[in-house]
Write a protein that binds this DNA or RNA. Structure first.
Lengths: 230, 230
DNA sequence: GTCCAATTGCGTAAAAATAACGCATTTTAT
DNA sequence: ATAAAATGCGTTATTTTTACGCAATTGGAC
């Protein structure tokens, strides 16, 4: 017997949410990929993703996928583009709402099927399933744009970090090099960092200051209309 | 008899594309709205939009809506967000891929049903149908962001324009005021404008220079990695 | 242990970009 | 006829960005 019980006058595409999960290991940006166990594209790597349920938004769907793979509930997730090419899935018409998530690698537990999931550095990413190559390019571009104007970078770092770690993150994402001292001055002048602990009197060099992102200060500044700019 | 002949194992949302159409009349930004003739939200204003066909992309769908309302085939259209709130349409689950289009008002012909279509200045826009208030806010924000980094503003102006017209456009979109002389210098220094016709020797003041957007120059500059910045 | 290279905090000076404003001329509106 | 507004083309002051110096300290090589 046929179980196709949801019927419509016109053909409806399937809607999925995909989630490009970015992490940062202190040196380079990584992305979490899943190896496909079934056709099509069996054996190829792809982003976590799945069908949107009828009672959840696309973002909720993306968060669900994120949690399944990483155990994380509260990461930063943002929708960045919807891909609707007619033949992007060979089986049927599928429209996917693509998101990216920024996670702290230290907080990531292995997902349900860790066996088939792996972190890839950006320059190690193989050719992907479906149109996921294009999705990744777009995600990276959006991340680059975003990190210049919103302090999303902090979502990738530990709560407490050094200025060098923060600079490494910016350099990894934007693929540029900054002068260490200018980066330091600029960041501090922005006023969105607070010292994690007061620098001890006997502190010497080579014992870097630790900072944390100050969300309250940022909210204040943002209200006054302020941009990060890099 | 029932015509519901497209059947699926799981419920599928409808997918639509909406198109926020922006124009510029030399003074203020306008948006094209359609008055709904049927429930829900009968009598309320909304953006042109409609169901995505099974063999077209969301952008093609948005362009189709745009052409129906304005007669324009080649306007600038960009997807900016997909709205998937569960109850955004009271009838059924509808996911909409929202786009904005930038059109030259002079090129717009009345659409199929011009009777129910009207241009509204941004500060005249009434409360809209569905979640279109939110869609408009987001479209405007995206437009503001975009115009700072991509020369999309020229899509709203006639081919040939004066510096004052260009400034008025930027001021209308960004809701700020620029010093006329600084704006003039900055724009010229960017190098993406060419004089529409050489300024005649007998030209006097009060006969403003005419410019046009130089796409070739812009492509060159963009390649070298350059940003507009305002 | 000694020594060198790398790291960190804190500055300063030059260069570039931005913002503020001047002025003569010409046209439109009153 | 006259005042007000628009235009082209500047200049100057201020702010921001960039380039770089320097001393102190640590980790690693040997």
């Amino acid at each position: 017997m046929n179980e196709q019980k949801f019927c419509y006058k016109y053909p409806h595409p399937s809607v999925t949410a995909d989630c490009v999960i970015f992490g940062f290991d202190g040196v380079s940006i990584k992305v979490l990929l899943i190896q496909r166990g079934i056709e099509p594209f069996k054996g190829k790597w792809a982003f976590p993703g799945g069908f949107m349920k009828i009672d959840e938004t696309a973002e909720e769907c993306a968060r669900r996928e994120l949690e399944e793979e990483t155990g994380l509930k509260n990461a930063a997730v943002e929708q960045f583009y919807t891909f609707s090419d007619v033949n992007r899935d060979p089986r049927e018409r599928v429209v996917t709402v693509a998101h990216y998530a920024l996670v702290r690698l230290s907080e990531v537990k292995g997902g349900d099927d860790a066996a088939s999931a792996r972190w890839f550095a950006m320059d190690e990413v193989p050719s992907l399933a479906f149109d996921h190559d294009r999705i990744l390019r777009m995600a990276v571009n959006r991340l680059k744009e975003r990190i210049c104007f919103e302090p999303i970078g902090f979502e990738l770092l530990p709560e407490v970090f050094t200025m060098t770690e923060l600079q490494n993150l910016y350099e990894a994402i934007l693929e540029v090099k900054f002068d260490r001292r200018n980066f330091y001055n600029k960041m501090l002048k922005l006023g969105i960092l607070s010292e994690a602990e007061p620098r001890p009197a006997n502190a010497t060099n080579r014992t870097p200051n630790k900072y944390r992102f100050n969300a309250e200060k940022y909210a204040e500044l943002k209200q006054k209309g302020f941009r990060l700019e890099f």
